[in-house]
């Protein structure tokens, strides 16, 4: 295997972000069991290399559109763990003021446009953001994350066509975890090689090992570079796997435990940390310290969320419409 092409500090940054997502989500599952978090909760555990690699390849000015499995993306993008946890607790200090919950994390400060829970629904939105940038001469990329399930939606095909037709700066980031909820890809798609679909729109495409944070980062950097240079949209498939159930209601009747265990061998956290250790960029002691820091951040976020205030029900109707600006 090629050596990790980053200095120690940056490599540790990538590992740290994957750890932060992992520890945060493990705690979320626990808090769900305890009844602190309700509604739907979709965990990203196993897929962390995708969000971490991809978002570290983009700039702070780029637009991000994500799905309902977006805790990791929000966190790496720079939304504080406190605000994410408070959102899941339904508190006013949440990043969507408790109006969205786990599936609808939003943050205007980091150009994080959700948290979209209609499968495929975020794709036309991303096309429009990119159209606005292009019309205004803003040289930014709109990165739109979606799963393999979205590829079956009409919205996917309409968005791909519009982006390609108008040569818009959209990076289509398909996180292919092989299952749309409980339906395996081969039971849902006539063509399971998803990157081939881009050819129907004359769009550049690539696929990459989504369990390898370095591969994700390098592929995203390359793709985003082309998009930013004005070459039009790009379809990038991250081949990944979710280790946990689809949501907290999923009994996982549709896949073998052996399959899950096999994928876990390629888990993005332990494979990357092993690589760094082998290259002398990380000691076990350092790893344990990073892990302890992540656990500490999670504990602080839970404490923050516990103590945060609930919004008054008197404000129930706030923000259905934009308040009129005082003259």
């Amino acid at each position: 295997m090629e050596p990790v092409p980053y200095d120690k500090a940056f490599a540790i940054r990538l590992l740290t972000d994957m750890l932060r997502i992992r520890r945060m989500e493990e705690k979320c599952a626990e808090l769900y069991g305890a009844g602190k978090i309700r509604g739907f909760l979709h965990l990203y555990i196993g897929e962390e290399a995708c969000a971490v690699g991809a978002l570290h390849a983009l700039t702070a000015e780029d637009n991000i559109v994500a799905t309902y499995r977006e805790h990791g993306h929000a966190l790496v993008r720079g939304v504080s763990m406190n605000a994410i946890m408070a959102e899941m607790f339904g508190k006013a200090a949440g990043c969507s003021r408790g109006r969205g919950g786990s599936m609808h994390l939003f943050d205007s400060a980091t150009r994080f446009y959700g948290g979209n829970a209609i499968v495929g629904g975020g794709l036309p939105l991303a096309v429009g953001l990119a159209l606005a940038d292009k019309m205004q001469g803003i040289p930014m990329v709109t990165a739109c994350f979606f799963g393999d399930g979205a590829v079956a939606e009409g919205a996917f095909h309409e968005a791909m066509n519009l982006a390609a037709l108008w040569k818009l700066p959209v990076l289509f980031c398909c996180e292919n975890n092989l299952y749309g909820m409980g339906t395996a890809l081969e039971r849902a798609e006539a063509q399971v090689d998803l990157s081939v679909k881009a050819a129907g729109y004359r769009m550049a495409a690539a696929k990459v090992d989504g369990m390898d944070v370095v591969a994700v980062l390098e592929a995203t950097r390359l793709a985003a570079g082309q998009v930013r240079a004005g070459a039009g949209p790009f379809f990038l498939e991250y081949q990944t796997y979710r280790f946990r159930a689809h949501s907290m209601f999923d009994p996982e009747l549709y896949r073998d435990k052996a399959e899950v265990e096999k994928w876990k061998e390629r888990g993005p956290l332990h494979t990357f940390s092993a690589r760094l250790k082998a290259e002398g960029k990380l000691s076990e002691k350092e790893f344990l310290k990073l892990d302890a820091q992540a656990e500490k951040e999670v504990a602080a976020a839970v404490d923050f969320a516990e103590r945060a205030e609930l919004e008054s029900v008197n404000d129930l109707l706030t923000d259905v419409y934009t308040p009129a600006v005082a003259p």
Binding site: Y113, V127, G128, L129, L131, M135, E158, N161
Partner: peptide, 28 residues
């Protein structure tokens, strides 16, 4: 043609793109 933009027969796509463009600072 940039500002008077013909679209394909793609109602979901171009209405969604209008939403995104509105978010991005335009007035579609």
């Amino acid at each position: 043609p940039e500002r008077i933009r013909d679209t394909p027969l793609s109602e979901l796509g171009f209405v969604g793109a209008g939403i995104g463009a509105a978010l991005g600072g335009m007035r579609p």
